[in-house]
């Protein structure tokens, strides 16, 4: 689906999520966006009944890679996803009403030995989504494209932009 111009949403403010960062919003008329996912995963949670949404931009699958150093929880899927879920529930969302969408995980060609972060992230997300019983309603992952995403907190729609292509909605 291609997004059409809507004056009601065109002026909505946008909260930007950096790499290794997460943000939530309880304000319905808000976008939450993150740029250039590359091999990272961008994960959106949205409670449509209460119009509470959140986004995580995680770079790596597991925090175990840091070997005891102080970590930025949002950098890793295994720490970032629970943190985002907890934040949403604290803000008033109900887990049973939260839909999850996942984006990113791009991969270079012929990466059997090196540069496999995209596939490692997708594998880890799949595992965590099963363990945490997440309601994943959209997968827009893998491939060789750099995705920028924008969650419309009013509707739960996620607008996806990839270089040289028109935007589309998931």
């Amino acid at each position: 689906m291609v997004p059409s111009y809507n004056p009601a949403t065109a002026q909505m403010p946008t909260i930007i999520v950096g790499v290794a960062d997460l943000k939530i919003s309880t304000e319905p008329a808000t976008y939450i966006a993150t740029h250039a996912l590359g091999s990272c995963l961008g994960i959106t949670f949205h409670d449509a009944k209460r119009r509470i949404g959140g986004m995580l931009h995680a770079m790596l699958p597991t925090s175990k890679i840091t070997q005891g150093e102080k970590i930025r929880e949002a950098m890793f899927l295994d720490t970032g996803i629970p943190k985002l879920l907890t934040a949403l529930i604290r803000a008033g969302a109900k887990k049973a009403d939260i839909c999850c969408k996942v984006f990113g995980g791009a991969q270079l060609m012929a990466t059997d030995n090196f540069f496999r972060i995209g596939s490692k992230n997708i594998d880890m997300f799949y595992r965590l989504s099963q363990e945490m019983d997440l309601d994943v309603v959209s997968w827009e992952v893998s491939g060789r494209v750099n995705r920028t995403i924008r969650l419309n907190n009013l509707t739960g729609d996620v607008i996806v932009k990839i270089p040289s292509k028109p935007e589309f909605i998931r």
């Binding site: 590359g38 270079l108 012929a110 540069f115 270089p163 040289s164």
Partner: peptide
Amino acid sequence: TQLGYGVGVDGFYYEPDV
């Protein structure tokens, strides 16, 4: 490239020199 910053349409269409 994996980090994504400023990567264009060409970015992921390369093979590593293993």
